[in-house]
Design a protein around this nucleic acid. Structure first.
Lengths: 237, 237
DNA sequence: TTGACAAGGATTGTTAACAATCTTGAACTG
DNA sequence: CAGTTCAAGATTGTTAACAATCCTTGTCAA
């Protein structure tokens, strides 16, 4: 495990591309992740240009990158829309997480160093604080980020990228199929998973994670999809 | 498990983007995968334009996509170069595969249907044929593709994408750090893994896969890196 | 000979105009 | 009134010229 992880420079997200479009990508990515941009929302080039004060080329490149990550969908001659996962895709996302995440926490329970654990502990504190203040978007963001940080704690950028994609998709899915209450993860499950990792109990950590994922998935209603639209680019600040 | 998998339309690689640049991406991707394009090779826009008979914009978009997949590296004002993984990245790739692939084959041993197994069996036959004829690039291609097809057999596009990225990186790494002999996977290990899956023996399949990955990794010399260069764009046909 | 320096050419990055496609809405027909 | 057609506007796709940067090469001086 690495100590540089929390610096978030070593294990970071986007490869290639200049910093300008990475900024746009990150902003939109984050907005989707926090469910501030609903699926099917149209992202027009002109709007994004003025929002970010940047040329059309940069916006187009950013959109291309986002589409390659599955965050948005590019329709030919029709523009970019926030991705809208369907039932089957939702199942795939959870299946993929069920495959990857249990071995991940198992490994963390065996190998995580103190620095990683400190970061995660710190994160849980933030989550609790946000929950206490009932800050909806903050709760959503931190809930997803916990899982991302688990991956980050491995110090492995491939694992991180995989998990980041899966967690983002999960956020879209929960926004689409979840009831307003369980928009985030159940209260203390994250904390319990971390405790299992800290007490170096791989089996327990894995078991808790599996039931955690099951809780999230079972809180979804795969048939009734949520209100599709809403649009403001002021969402992007 | 799905029956449409081998049609390779359901679980496919690239999201978004028009077909033209996907063609370019696929061509370069494949060339890297088959070790016909060595790391550090420069991919100049002009060259690619004439090679594919396409405008500069298409090429630039393709390069951006390839860089987002980590296949190439975009250097500001200096152009695109085939990615050149270092020692630490190589270790990360194998660590990620060790995390993902064992549960994957375990799951296949439990759930793979006859169609999936038939595809894999067929693949092994092709591999053997290529080996018999000593067709180097074909052997390399099929060796990697076996692992990709394992992922494809799950019918899960996220798992597929993850594995595809990892396998491609592995190909780069083996080309860089491997001796000329073990450029591909050891002879009958793929076959044995498949047999374990067919006989519905998850533990054995997992065990064989782990030792298979270990064989590949231990055949590498992480310190002596290979001849860096060679360039022709006729490589792309 | 070696090194620094500068000019020219080559390559990449950016912009703006143009072309193609889609969307909107009003007029028209049945 | 419902449905269709068509034209104007809006949006996206493409191209070509221009700007900026990098690389090469030849010259010069130590």
């Amino acid at each position: 495990m690495s100590s540089e992880v929390q610096q978030s420079n070593i294990v970071t997200s986007d490869t290639g591309a200049t910093s300008d479009e990475n900024f746009i990508v990150e902003r939109i990515f984050k907005a989707v992740m926090e469910q501030r941009l609903a699926p099917k929302t149209k992202l027009s080039e002109a709007r994004l240009c003025e929002t970010f004060g940047v040329g059309r080329m940069r916006v187009r490149r950013a959109l291309l990158l986002l589409s390659s990550q599955g965050i948005i969908e590019l329709q030919s001659n029709r523009g970019a829309y926030v991705a809208c996962p369907d039932k089957s895709e939702a199942n795939d996302v959870f299946a993929a997480r069920m495959l990857v995440e249990p071995p991940l926490v198992r490994q963390l329970a065996q190998n995580a160093d103190d620095i990683d654990l400190a970061i995660l502990t710190d994160h849980i504190a933030h989550e609790d604080a946000a929950r206490a203040k009932k800050e909806r978007t903050e709760i959503i963001r931190l809930s997803g980020e916990f899982h991302t940080k688990l991956a980050q704690a491995t110090g492995n950028k491939f694992i991180f990228r995989m998990m980041r994609e899966l967690v983002t998709r999960t956020s879209l899915i929960v926004g689409l199929f979840g009831s307003s209450e369980n928009a985030s993860c159940p209260d203390d499950e994250h904390s319990n998973i971390l405790k299992a990792i800290q007490s170096r109990n791989p089996e327990l950590a894995e078991e808790l994670l599996i039931s955690h994922l099951n809780h999230i998935q079972s809180g979804l209603d795969m048939d009734a999809r949520q209100a599709p639209q809403d649009d403001l680019a002021a969402i992007l600040r």
